[in-house]
Simulated scan of single mutants.
Amino acid sequence: MTTLLDDFLSGDRSRVMPAVWETIRSRDPETLDSLLAALPRLRRAAAQLDLGGAIYSNNDHFAHALSKLEHYRDGKCWCAVYPGLLTHDPRKEETQGHIRILSTSEPGWSMTYLCECTVCGQEFDIEQGDHHFTWWNWVPRGLKRRRGEV
Rank of each mutant, 00 (worst) to 15 (best):
M1Y: 11
M1P: 02
T2L: 05
T3G: 03
L5F: 04
D6W: 07
F8E: 01
S10V: 11
S10Q: 07
R15W: 09
R15Y: 08
R15P: 00
R15D: 02
M17F: 13
A19K: 00
V20M: 02
V20F: 05
V20Y: 01
W21G: 00
T23P: 07
I24R: 09
R25L: 10
R27V: 11
D28N: 13
T31C: 04
T31M: 06
L32F: 07
L32E: 02
S34M: 11
L35R: 01
A37P: 09
A37V: 08
A38P: 05
L39M: 15
L39R: 15
L42E: 03
L42C: 10
R43C: 04
R43Q: 12
R44D: 11
L51F: 11
G52V: 12
G53D: 09
G53W: 09
A54R: 15
A54S: 13
A54E: 14
A54I: 07
Y56V: 06
Y56F: 09
S57M: 05
N58Q: 15
N59T: 06
N59C: 03
D60P: 04
A63M: 07
H64P: 08
A65C: 12
A65G: 09
L69E: 00
L69V: 06
E70G: 00
H71M: 12
H71L: 14
H71W: 13
Y72S: 05
R73G: 04
R73F: 06
R73A: 10
D74M: 05
K76Y: 13
K76Q: 11
C77K: 10
C77V: 13
C77M: 14
C77T: 15
Y82I: 00
G84H: 01
G84Y: 02
G84L: 02
L85Y: 12
L86W: 14
T87H: 06
T87P: 00
T87C: 02
H88G: 02
H88Y: 15
H88F: 15
P90E: 01
P90V: 04
R91I: 01
E93A: 04
E93K: 03
E94Q: 14
Q96P: 03
Q96F: 15
Q96M: 14
Q96W: 15
Q96Y: 15
H98Q: 08
I99A: 00
I99P: 00
L102F: 06
T104P: 03
S105P: 11
S105E: 10
E106T: 14
P107A: 11
G108S: 09
W109F: 13
S110N: 12
M111R: 13
T112P: 03
T112R: 11
Y113F: 14
Y113P: 00
Y113E: 00
L114S: 03
C115V: 15
C117E: 02
T118E: 01
V119E: 11
C120Y: 03
G121K: 09
Q122A: 09
Q122C: 06
E123I: 08
E123N: 06
E123A: 04
D125M: 04
Q128P: 01
G129D: 13
G129E: 06
H131D: 05
H131Y: 14
H131N: 10
F133V: 10
F133I: 07
W138I: 05
P140R: 09
P140D: 07
P140F: 04
G142T: 05
G142V: 08
R145M: 08
R145I: 07
R145C: 05
R146H: 12
R147C: 12
E149A: 15
V150L: 03
V150N: 03
